[in-house]
């Protein structure tokens, strides 16, 4: 039931995205104006909220290694642990954006290293298609990240989070740049 509900919502996002795209073409100047006005209103340092969907065996362990190595990184990430990236339903990502995430990270084992032999390949394939769908709906592609972090790559995990946080901080809050979201829920 939950899934169907989200599917309906997803479709409405698509529709809203298309509408705003047309609006962009019609009134580019006007849109730009509203954008700049909003920017002035934001506080000096924007702290983005990043939701990371990680697999239990590689990236979660890599994040653990970052911890045991005491590598400091930005406190903006919230990890949601799953057994494998293959478990990631695209609706998870959508739901995270809907809930207020400014960026989403999906990270699992390197190709060939999946604990479940091929879950990350499924995730990658699904991701490639889903990314295009997201782009189509008007979601800013600078907010969706995909990476491979192995259990031995604590430093890579820390760097990744720092980089994403910096990128998203530069891109600004999600709701502002995504008119679809603003119309529907704000």
């Amino acid at each position: 039931m939950l899934k169907q509900q989200f599917a309906r919502r997803f479709l409405s996002i698509c529709a809203a995205g298309l509408r705003t795209r047309r609006a962009d073409w019609d009134r580019t100047g006007l849109m730009a104006e509203t954008e700049t006005k909003k920017v002035e209103a934001t506080p000096a340092v924007f702290e983005p909220k990043i939701v990371a969907f990680v697999c239990n065996w590689c990236t979660y362990a890599g994040a653990d290694l970052a911890g045991t190595s005491r590598l400091q990184y930005a406190p903006n990430v919230r990890i949601v642990k799953l057994p494998c990236t293959g478990r990631i339903d695209p609706l998870f990502i959508l739901k995270a954006f809907e809930g207020g995430a400014d960026a989403v990270l999906v990270s699992g084992c390197h190709p060939g290293d999946c604990h479940y032999t091929s879950g990350n390949y499924h995730a990658r394939r699904r991701w490639a298609i889903f990314r295009r769908l997201l782009e189509f709906t008007g979601i800013d592609m600078r907010r969706v990240f995909f990476s491979w972090v192995s259990a031995a790559e604590g430093a890579k995990f820390a760097d990744l989070i720092n980089r994403i946080t910096a990128d998203v901080r530069a891109a600004g809050p999600f709701e502002r740049t995504n008119p679809a979201r603003r119309r529907l829920w704000k």
Binding site: L2, V80, L82, C84, G86, R87, F92, K95, G99, Y116
Partner: peptide, 28 residues
């Protein structure tokens, strides 16, 4: 691994310990 859960078209498979309900409530 849960690959089948994410791939199911009729939403008929769930993974004990990481059900849709659990994951969505985490995200929400």
């Amino acid at each position: 691994c849960g690959t089948c859960v994410a791939i199911c078209r009729s939403n008929s498979i769930d993974l004990d310990g990481f059900t849709d309900e659990q994951v969505f409530s985490e995200i929400v």
